[in-house]
Structures are given as C-alpha cells and as structure tokens.
C-alpha cells in the first residue's frame, strides 16, 4: 500500500471498521440523523399522541352517567398502551413508507450502519416520540378519575418492552413490504382490527371464550396486562404468561425486523 504524505484526512481508507465502536458510532449518529430529520414531526407526534390519549380517557366517561370505578381504572391503564401500540405499529411504519416514497430510502439503506444499530436507533426515536404522550395520558386519567394507581418501578422496563415489541412489529412490516401504499393499508388494518378485538381497554373475560384464548397468544392483550400489572395493585392476578408472550413477540419481531432490513431482493 502506497500513500503519499500529503493525502488529506478524508482520503478513502482501506481499513474496515468493526466491533463495539463501529456499532456505537452507527447507533448514535443514526439516532441523531432520525431526530434531526423528524424534529418537526416528533413535536407534532407528541401533540397528536397526547390528544388521542386524553380524548380516549375523557371520552370514555361519556358512556356512563357516573363511570364505575372499575371501568375508570381499566380505561386509565389501557389507554397508555393504546398510545404505545399506535405509535410503534401505525406511525412508525407510515414514516418508513413516507421515506421510501421520497426516494431517499436507498441512500439511508446504503449507509454503513450495522443492522441492529439501525433498528436500535429507530427504537429510541420511537421512545422519544411516544413517552411524553403516554405520561400526559396518565396525568389526564389521574386528574379525571383519581383511579387507585399503584405504580411500581417495573413500569419503566415494561414500557420499554411494550414499545420495543410494538416498534419491531411495525418496523419488520415496513421494511419487508416493498410498496409504501401496501404498508400503510396493512398496518392500518392490523391496528384497527387488533384494537377492536384485543382486550386492551376491557377485561378479556367480557369477550367470547375462543377470542380471549386467541388473544392470550397475540401481543396486544398481554401488553395491556403487563402495563396494568405495574400500574395497579391486585387488578391482575397472574401476569407471568403475559410477560413471556410480549417478550417472545418482541424478540421474534426484532429478529424479523433486522432480517427484513438487510434483505436483498
């Protein structure tokens, strides 16, 4: 290898980057890339999330003359999950679809960032966009209903897990499907079907038995269960299985997302 002394610092190198330093560089700078490119959108997102959350919380009381305390508690603990699911599974994929439509997708895909670092950066972006809305929703619920919250520190890892699983499901879909329009249709259908038929705002016992059993294996119901488990005392008898189901979905979809991200056609 011959290089002259006056080669500038930016001259192309023959050294390949690898290891933890390479991963970390890719993660941090990809994260900054997303935060910069979405700065306007993230502010809007937080506002929309807060509106949806507060709207659900307040709107639910209108079903009743006097909302029963049990219903108030279910709604107060379910709507934050709704926030997080909407975020990861609906808004995330639509954002990726938007970038694909703009045409810059190839450029970003061709940047030297490890696939897991790219997925991790996207996950953190989703957290940044989603957490304020969730907190505002909880505050609104507290002010309106004063439900008997018993918030355990576990709420932090549980929120991280729910957002991770939701984000990875959406991320896998967004990257696996070529056509942006198709992504939007499928994620919208998925979210609304899943929300109508998943026990998020109400107890699973109120569903037909078969549908309740199906939901034990799907991610959305168990997400609500583990959130409730950390926000209340005694509302959930045994959440062990729900933790397991959400974790397995998260790991599986994380793996699928990274594969879809690196897939060559």
């Amino acid at each position: 290898m011959i290089a002259t002394l006056d080669a500038p610092a930016w001259a192309p190198t023959t050294t390949l980057r690898s290891g933890a330093g390479y991963w970390w560089t890719g993660f941090t700078w990809m994260l900054r890339w997303h935060l910069s490119s979405l700065r306007m959108w993230l502010m809007l997102l937080v506002m929309v999330q807060a509106l949806i959350g507060v709207g659900y919380v307040l709107g639910f009381a209108l079903f009743f003359d006097e909302i029963p305390p049990a219903a108030a508690l279910w709604v107060s603990t379910g709507v934050p999950v709704l926030n997080l699911i909407l975020l990861g599974m609906l808004l995330g994929p639509q954002l990726v679809a938007g970038v694909k439509e703009q045409g810059g997708y190839d450029f970003v895909q061709a940047l030297p960032v490890p696939l897991t670092a790219a997925a991790a950066a996207w996950y953190v972006v989703t957290l940044v966009g989603g957490l304020p809305g969730m907190v505002i929703t909880l505050v609104a619920a507290e002010l309106r209903y004063h439900p008997p919250f018993a918030i355990s520190p576990l709420v932090v890892p549980v929120t991280l897990l729910i957002v991770f699983t939701g984000t990875m499901i959406g991320y896998a879909l967004a990257h696996a499907i070529t056509k942006p329009m198709t992504t939007q249709l499928i994620t919208q259908a998925l979210v609304f079907v899943a929300m109508g038929f998943a026990p998020i705002l109400f107890p699973a016992e109120q569903m037909p038995g078969w549908l309740a059993s199906v939901n034990e294996w799907l991610p959305l119901g168990p997400m609500a269960t583990i959130m409730r488990d950390t926000l209340t005392d005694g509302l959930i008898a045994d959440a062990g299985r729900a933790y397991l189901v959400v974790t397995v979905w998260g790991v599986a979809c994380g793996w699928l997302a990274v594969r879809a991200l690196g897939r060559r056609r």
């Binding site: 390949l16 910069s36 490119s37 703009q102 045409g103 810059g104 061709a110």
Partner: peptide, 22 residues
C-alpha cells in the same frame, strides 16, 4: 458481505436526498 460493501462504497442516488428537515 453487503455490510462491507456499505463501508467501501459511497452512493449518490438519482432521487433527491431526504433532507427536508436538515
């Protein structure tokens, strides 16, 4: 090794870059 390709190649696509907010 596509991950090596991404390090060794720089690419300007024909489409405009996604830099509206930058």
């Amino acid at each position: 090794h596509p991950e090596v390709a991404r390090q060794l190649c720089s690419y300007l696509p024909q489409a405009q870059m996604p830099i509206d907010a930058f």
